[in-house]
Design a protein around this nucleic acid. Structure first.
Lengths: 338, 338
DNA sequence: CCTGGCACTCGCGGGGCACGAGTGCCAGGT
DNA sequence: ACCTGGCACTCGTGCCCCGCGAGTGCCAGG
């Protein structure tokens, strides 16, 4: 166990490094933070911190830089989430209030988060599996072709074109629409498969083909890859990373474009409060020098999806965490209103 | 007017520079292209081309680099659009065929275009104003609250929540839905305002509030900023730009994130065939060292939206133009099928 | 109008060097 | 047992200098 002062030194190192982006030396530390000890003492502490793996030297004659482990300790024990200022909160609310639909909410959230944190923002659309059905619409496009439109309580809309084996009548379609909605409207999507199980039986044999095809498309939609979608913004902030970064920025951009990757990483963030995944903790190669702050958001007490921020491991954790949490809260409110 | 050979020299310079990313000198030119004249002659030609503003030297003792004007001449007079290979075409078709809905089509198109051109791809969603109405759905969310869902023939879906001044009955809503669809289904969106003009009059005074509110939201939706949406991909390719690029890449990322900017730029591209906007021709500061290749796409002969590519002015124009055109064609086909 | 020759320019890369921030260690003080 | 000042050492950074070579412009002759 590290002594109180050594923790203090670590905290100071993290803070300074985050501020200056430069390795921090013992002398600078004693000057900027009032640690009441001499540089030599700090040097000894630093040697210990280095032995324990919390900090490292980029090269022999340089200052120290926190390691992933150091940031981890900082986040877990040394940092408090920094609440946003009142004007900031007000700005968030005003900005989000102007949204006209779900796409707009998500889009505005991404921009907002990117601007507040000056990093890359990632916002997941409300997942189908954690939403409830608001309405299922069926539209006839052609004699044997239907468009299936799913609408969730969070305002998300999914659509599919269904090709049926045989033509069907308008009344059959209307009938299916009515019965389907009677069963699933207001229910959770996870319940839908169970709820529609015996639906085909209640139809004439003539219409079973239609019913079966539509239902199977409906069920597929719930398990597809596109079930989860996300929006990303603020990539221009990546250019602030480091001065080295052709090498740094590229894999990050690539990872961000692979939605599957981001979905997986965000899926692994399971702390109901807030998850911070630091450096190599991220199970993806391109993101080993970034940290990801993730939090769930939802219209009620339950999370319907996640949002977060991707930035360099050297980020302002307290500030970022504060912003992410605040935004998640407001988005939840907005969704509840829609 | 430039002589035939000088044009040939310019073409060779563009081709070499695009290939090597390095200023090209007179000697290298004569070696790689069989111009049948000596380097000295080429030097004279280059001096003329420089006087005319088609090429420039980065510094005194370096080779020449094409200017925006040089690329312009190249694109207009010297280059042919390079058709894609058969396997490439087949790959495009296979990849796009797997799409399940419009978002998926647009998403896949972006990825495809980014991959083919190794540049940043931009795809506009089919614009409402150039589409026709497939269906208008009205859902009751609460006693005095309606969700309005617009579905276009291209598969695009827009939704709005409408707060009504007074509660309404389910039959009123059903009535409105039926009459509204009877009027507008299958019609162009631009016609909608005219077609619904006298609709309120045909309702009971009780329901006029509902009808008026819903209609005005509907009309607003058609003129809103969100009317045009777009998707962007392949930003990781920006890292291939130049070795200098912290300064280069940043403004480009910023411009790309400002959808308004991209929409305006693409809106200015009005050539029915294909538009190439080079360097400073782009009316946006951050994009003065990029070129934008834009083409319209649509399910029929008429364009419903645009798609294109953003890359360095030093790009492979024939190849890029070929890819953009081919992709636009296939997307049009896919849309027609949905 | 093309060509070979020639002098000139200038960016690039490498070697050498001085500076200074930062370290580790030690001996002495509390 | 812990803190501190002192000291020698390391090593990355910035700088200057210089030689190389690609590329140019110009000119005189074919």
């Amino acid at each position: 166990m590290l002594s109180e002062r050594r923790l203090e030194v670590l905290r100071a190192i993290v803070q300074d490094y985050v501020g200056t982006e430069e390795p921090v030396g013992s002398k600078a530390l004693t000057q900027r933070h009032d640690l009441r000890v001499s540089p030599a003492t700090v040097r000894n502490d630093m040697a210990v911190l280095e032995d324990e793996g919390y900090i490292a030297q980029p090269h022999t004659s340089a200052g120290r830089v926190p390691t992933d482990k150091g940031y981890r300790l900082f986040v877990d024990k040394l940092a408090d989430v920094k609440p946003l200022s009142v004007p900031e909160r007000r700005a968030i609310q005003n900005f989000l209030d102007g949204a006209v639909d779900l796409d707009d909410v998500v889009g505005r959230t991404v921009r907002l988060l990117a601007q507040l944190t000056r990093q890359v923002a990632v916002v997941q659309y409300p997942s189908l599996s954690r939403s409830t059905v608001r309405h299922v619409e069926l539209l006839s496009l052609a004699p044997a072709r239907v468009m299936l439109v799913l609408i969730t309580d969070t305002g998300r809309v999914e659509q599919r074109v269904v090709d049926c084996p045989a033509p069907f009548g308008d009344t059959s379609l209307a009938e299916l629409r009515a019965r389907l909605n009677a069963r699933v409207a207001g229910q959770r999507f996870t319940e839908v498969p169970r709820l529609v199980l015996d639906l085909p039986e209640s139809f004439d044999t003539d219409d079973r083909g239609l019913v079966q095809t539509v239902l199977s498309t409906l069920l597929e939609t719930l398990v597809e890859e596109t079930e989860e979608r996300l929006m990303i913004g603020g990539t221009a902030n990546l250019t602030r990373f480091g001065h080295d970064f052709p090498l740094t920025i590229r894999p990050v951009l690539e990872a961000l474009e692979e939605q599957v990757v981001m979905l997986r990483l965000m899926g692994e963030a399971n702390d109901p409060e807030m998850t911070v995944s630091i450096g190599r903790e991220n199970a993806h190669e391109g993101l080993t020098s970034t940290s990801i702050v993730t939090v769930g958001y939802g219209s009620g007490d339950e999370a319907v999806a996640k949002l977060g921020v991707v930035g360099p491991t050297r980020m302002d954790y307290p500030g970022t965490m504060g912003a992410v949490r605040a935004v998640a809260r407001y988005v939840g409110q907005i969704l509840a209103e829609k």
